[in-house]
């Protein structure tokens, strides 16, 4: 079986890999010609731009925001004042509600930020309700997270006190 081994070395994968990839490219080209028929540049920019915008802008942006949040909240438990009172790293009490709130905004931003002038004329529905709903949901997420943090802190304190009593009989 010298031939396949040579192919492997030159191509970098099995012949099956090559066949499958070429098959998918042919299908993509068949559909792609039709996709690009109208506004070639516009569609190409949207298609490739969606990937680039996500990978090179959105993802770094939320990663940096998350790093900032970690720095702000002291990151991981284990510091001098912490004593494992918080089994959940404090950053998560900020991270989870912020993630939920921003996720909803990212999906529904055209309606929340009133970017759709045609909404009321087409549907006869009120376009002003979305921002209020999103803000209240956001308030709810942070309130719920605050309640969880309070509960965890109280639990941690009780445990620490019990630990002290046990240590000093």
């Amino acid at each position: 079986m010298k031939h396949p081994a040579g192919f492997l070395a030159r191509y970098g994968a099995s012949p099956l890999h090559l066949l499958l990839v070429l098959c998918s490219f042919a299908l993509a080209l068949y559909a792609g010609i039709r996709l690009l028929k109208g506004d070639l540049l516009g569609v190409a920019i949207w298609f490739v731009g969606a990937a680039l915008l996500h990978d090179l802008v959105l993802l770094p942006l939320y990663t940096l925001t998350d790093r900032a949040a970690q720095a702000l909240t002291g990151g991981r438990p284990g510091g001098a004042d912490d004593n494992r009172a918080h089994r959940v790293p404090p950053v998560n009490y900020l991270r989870v509600p912020a993630f939920l709130s921003l996720l909803l905004l990212a999906v529904w931003y055209p309606l929340i930020l009133r970017r759709v002038p045609g909404y009321r004329p087409a549907t006869a529905l009120d376009p002003d309700r979305f921002l209020g709903h999103w803000l209240l949901l956001t308030a709810g997420f942070f309130a719920l997270s605050a309640a969880c943090l309070l509960a965890a802190t109280a639990r941690g304190r009780r445990k620490a006190e019990r630990g002290r009593h046990a240590a000093k009989p």
Binding site: G38, D39, G42, V43, I45, W46, W108, P110, L111, R115, V116, G118, Y119, A122, T123
Partner: peptide, 9 residues
């Protein structure tokens, strides 16, 4: 969301 900003139908 009727936000027709994409390039085409």
């Amino acid at each position: 969301q009727l936000h027709y900003i994409f390039p085409g139908s």
